[in-house]
């Protein structure tokens, strides 16, 4: 029984939160890694792209709510999501046209593009703050829990409760659907294959008649969708504020780099490595240990390896360690 309780506590406080956080990071990191693979630079504006997509989604959510439109138990934001994606896609295509294309044509050094993306980051960050303000926004509605802790305890008779939040389930299910669609697209469609070819060997792709502008445009469209979905899922799970989303850039970069920049599978693996280490290092294990260790062996304190404030530090420690031993990430990434 104690073993089961420990397992439930582990699920409740570590596995489920880390899996949903990992899914959000993976979707974010996929966007970063696609841009790196196709456009060959690290996009510092990615966190703010997520913030912009989420902002538009929130505005539509509010509008739908004021009209009385809802999805019942599901959050209204899901209904607003496509509009957020469309707006973000328009923004990214415009940015590419107005900013990035010039440097692409000039074949500018990747580091210049990184600095350019810093400028874009400033603008997007300010625009988002201008539209929605700097405060925290909570836009999740619908049913909060699929199973709450009390019901679970009644159902199973265990002393430890399992709370399954709607947002966690939506996150994980959506992430699976998105990833399957993305890989199907990359591996089985003409345009998807041409994206991989372009990422693999740009010169040869040109010699094969692949149109670089089309590949780039499709990439931005996919990135818009990935970023907005990742942002909205994170916001539903926690809450939205422009600064938090800017900061999300850190674990997202860590995920993409740990997995190997430019490698989509790596981005997913990286997302989960980072999420599980963040949660694992900052969770107070006392609760779980209390069920399985005899009282005499029970250590003092919370059995927390690092305080929660160090979660970003954990993702970067992982990043640095991985880079030291495998300079291009767990899966083979590229470096330009």
């Amino acid at each position: 029984m104690d073993f089961l309780n420990a397992l439930v506590a582990l699920l409740n406080y570590v596995i489920i939160p880390a899996t949903s956080y990992g899914s959000q990071l993976a979707l974010g990191a996929l966007g970063v890694t696609l841009i790196y693979g196709i456009l060959r630079f690290s996009n510092f504006a990615h966190g703010d792209t997520m913030a912009f997509g989420t902002t538009i989604t929130i505005l539509f959510t509010w509008w739908f709510q004021s009209l009385g439109v809802s999805l019942g138990p599901l959050p209204t934001a899901l209904l607003a999501l496509p509009f957020g994606i469309l707006a973000t896609a328009a923004l990214l295509l415009f940015t590419d046209r107005a900013v990035y294309r010039f440097y692409r044509r000039k074949k500018a050094a990747p580091v210049i593009l990184v600095i350019v993306s810093m400028g874009v980051m400033f603008i997007m960050n300010g625009v988002t703050r201008f539209i929605i303000g700097v405060r925290d926004q909570n836009f999740a509605d619908g049913r909060r829990f699929i199973i709450n802790a009390l019901e679970f305890r009644k159902m199973t008779g265990l002393s430890e409760g399992l709370a399954l939040r709607t947002s966690s389930v939506i996150t994980i299910v959506t992430a699976i659907i998105v990833v399957v669609l993305l890989f199907w697209y990359l591996n089985h469609t003409r345009t998807g294959k041409s994206m991989r070819a372009f990422s693999d060997n740009e010169d040869l792709a040109l010699l094969s008649g692949i149109n670089p502008e089309r590949v780039v445009a499709v990439t931005w469209l996919i990135v818009a969708a990935l970023a907005t979905i990742a942002g909205v899922l994170y916001g539903l799970d926690k809450s939205f504020s422009p600064f938090t989303y800017f900061q999300l850039l850190l674990p997202i970069f860590a995920s993409a780099v740990v997995g190997g920049l430019g490698n989509p599978l790596g981005a997913i693996a990286g997302g989960f490595v980072v999420a599980f280490s963040e949660v694992g290092f900052t969770y107070a294990w006392r609760k779980v240990l209390a069920y399985i260790l005899p009282a005499s062996l029970m250590p003092h304190g919370l059995v927390q390896l690092l305080s929660t404030e160090y979660k970003f530090a954990v993702s970067f420690a992982i990043l640095v360690i991985v880079l030291l031993f495998r300079p291009t990430g767990l899966f083979k990434g590229k470096s330009v």
């Binding site: 003409r190 294959k193 070819a197 060997n201 040869l204 792709a205 094969s208 008649g209 692949i210």
Partner: peptide, 20 residues
């Protein structure tokens, strides 16, 4: 040099040749 798409399968390389 660099005359193949090394991360793609042989068949995909041929398909990319026929892209147009």
């Amino acid at each position: 040099t660099n005359n193949i798409f090394s991360s793609m399968t042989v068949e995909e390389n041929l398909e990319m040749g026929a892209f147009l």
